[in-house]
Simulated scan of single mutants.
Amino acid sequence: MSTTDRRTALADAAIDLIATRGIRALTHRALDTALDLPAGSASYYFRTKRALIEAITDRITTRSRDDFTAAQLTLSIPTDPYGIAHAIASWLDRLLAERRNHLIVRHALIIELIGDPELHHRLTHSLFSIERARDLFRALNFPDPDVAAADFIAVVEGAVFDRFAGARTHVPAGTPGSVDQLATLLSRYLAQPRSL
C-alpha cells in the first residue's frame, strides 16, 4: 500500500471511529487497532492529533468536491425554483445516504475546533461552496447574490443537520420522500422575491 493510500485509509478509519465512538476515542493507538496495524503506525503517518484532524478535514473536503463534480450539479439545471431545489435535494440526499459519518464528524469537529480559527474555517467550508451558491443566485437575478448565497448555505446546513441529527432523522435517506422533503424546503428559499 502506498503512503498516500495508507494516509487515506487512516483518515477514513479516523472518520468512522469518531462517528461511532466520539471525538475522545480518536487516538493513534485506536487507529492502529482499527486497521490491525503495528503499534505506532498511525503516529508515523500523522505525528500529532492536529495533523490527523487536518487529514480528516482534507479527506472530507476532497470527497465533497469529487462528489459534487461527479453529480454534475451545474447551472444547467432547470431554472424554476422547484427544479433547482430538486436537483440540489437529490445531491443532498445522496450525501445523507452515503456519507453520514462524514457529516457527523464534520459537525463534531466544527464544535471541537471553535478555538482553532484555521481548521475551523476549513471545516465550515469543506462541504458546500459559497462560490457556486453565489453563481446560482447571480443566474437567478437575486438582488444581492452574496447575501443570498450565504443565507442559502445556512439553510442547506440546517436542513442536512436536521436530517442526520435533528428532528427529521426518521426520514430515511435514499428515498423519494427524502428528496421531496429537502426539495420542498429549499424551493421556499429559492422562490423568495428577487427585488425589494
Rank of each mutant, 00 (worst) to 15 (best):
T4V: 13
T4I: 15
T4A: 14
R6S: 12
R7Y: 01
R7K: 15
T8E: 10
L10G: 04
A11T: 03
A13H: 06
I15Q: 03
D16I: 00
A19F: 07
R21P: 01
R24H: 09
R24Q: 14
A25Y: 04
T27A: 06
T27G: 06
D32L: 10
T33H: 10
A34L: 11
A34Q: 13
L35D: 01
D36A: 12
L37F: 06
P38V: 08
G40D: 07
S41Q: 04
S43K: 11
S43P: 00
S43R: 13
Y44P: 00
Y44M: 11
Y44G: 06
Y44S: 03
R47P: 01
T48F: 04
R50G: 09
R50Y: 06
A51N: 15
L52P: 03
I53G: 00
E54T: 11
I56N: 02
I56G: 04
T57I: 01
I60M: 04
R63H: 13
S64M: 05
S64Y: 02
R65G: 09
D66F: 03
D67S: 15
F68P: 00
A70G: 12
A71E: 12
Q72R: 15
Q72M: 06
T74P: 01
P78D: 10
P81Y: 10
P81W: 00
G83H: 06
H86M: 05
H86L: 09
A87C: 13
I88P: 00
I88V: 15
A89F: 08
S90F: 09
L92C: 15
L96S: 08
A97G: 05
A97T: 10
A97H: 15
E98G: 05
N101T: 14
L103Y: 03
L103W: 08
H107F: 02
A108D: 11
I110N: 00
E112D: 15
E112L: 02
E118Y: 02
L119R: 14
H120Y: 13
H121Y: 11
R122P: 00
H125L: 11
H125C: 03
S126V: 05
S126Y: 01
F128Y: 14
S129Q: 05
E131S: 11
D135Q: 09
L136V: 09
A139W: 13
L140S: 09
N141G: 07
F142P: 00
D151Y: 09
D151H: 14
F152S: 13
I153Q: 04
V155T: 14
V156L: 11
G158L: 10
G158V: 05
G158R: 07
G158F: 04
A159L: 14
A159E: 08
V160A: 07
D162K: 11
A167M: 06
R168D: 13
T169C: 12
A173W: 00
G174N: 05
T175H: 03
T175S: 08
P176R: 10
S178P: 09
S178C: 06
V179N: 06
L182I: 08
T184R: 13
L186T: 11
Y189D: 09
L190Q: 10
A191H: 04
Q192D: 05
P193N: 03
